[in-house]
């Protein structure tokens, strides 16, 4: 069981790198869906009660199916396929991602861990995923890429939450999921409006720059 969890965590790290190095939006959205499913599976490996089951199915359905479908819908609507000219190139962002993962490993090494997490990849993976999300969010121009970055960041936070088995009551976890879903919903609507207002196929958040001091 322990090895399975480690394998899942390593897969999460691999998906992170895939998100960093890919320009096709469809693939990036897919990757975020896979990551959502991996999180649900990790949860099931750790806990086998009905609460965990309910939460894991919620996670898999919302992060693995509903949110990606929403994003794909938004993508079709605005008719863009690729992230072009990100603020930081794909190779550079891969390197930065590797650096962030290394830093996450180092930082998690300096924090004292509870016996259950000592020597596992849990905390470093969580931190690396948060940093990856942050990286994607800040270096991509397309609103949809940024939304995926936010999802990855949120996945990292969720992984950290998994270490806390009992601290988080089901209601709160579901509330977090619901907030995330509503957030993506609102983001999707805004993306559509950005598309309509700017009436450009590019739909570039870099064009959102009329508000300045």
């Amino acid at each position: 069981m322990h090895q399975l969890v480690e394998a899942l965590l390593v897969s999460v790290l691999v998906v992170n790198f895939f998100v960093l190095g890919t320009s096709r939006l469809n693939a990036v959205i897919h990757a975020s869906a896979v990551e959502g499913v991996l999180l649900g599976a990790t949860l099931l490996c750790l806990r086998r009660d009905w609460e965990a089951l309910a939460l894991a199915s919620g996670v898999i359905v919302i992060k693995g199916v509903v949110i990606p479908a929403l994003l794909r819908g938004a993508m079709r609507e605005v008719a863009i396929r690729r992230e072009v000219e990100p603020f930081v190139g794909f190779t550079t962002s891969l390197l930065l991602g590797a650096l962030a993962t290394g830093l996450a490993l180092l930082f998690a090494g300096t924090l004292p861990l509870a016996p259950a997490q000592a020597g596992t990849l849990f905390v470093p993976t969580a931190l690396a995923t948060v940093l990856t999300g942050f990286l994607v969010l800040t270096t991509r121009r397309k609103a949809i890429s940024q939304a995926v970055g936010y999802l990855v960041l949120e996945n990292g936070v969720f992984l950290m939450g998994l270490t806390l088995a009992r601290a988080l009551p089901l209601v709160v976890e579901l509330g977090v999921l619901l907030d995330l879903l509503m957030g993506v919903l609102v983001i999707g609507i805004i993306i559509n409006h950005i598309n309509r207002e700017l009436s450009s196929v590019e739909m570039d958040t870099a064009k959102l720059s009329s508000l300045q001091d």
Binding site: G183, V186, I190, I194, E197, L208, S210, L211
Partner: peptide, 16 residues
Amino acid sequence: PRSLEATWKYLVLCSV
């Protein structure tokens, strides 16, 4: 368009 830009920044920055 301006309120759209403000809303986008608000959503993304505050959510993060």
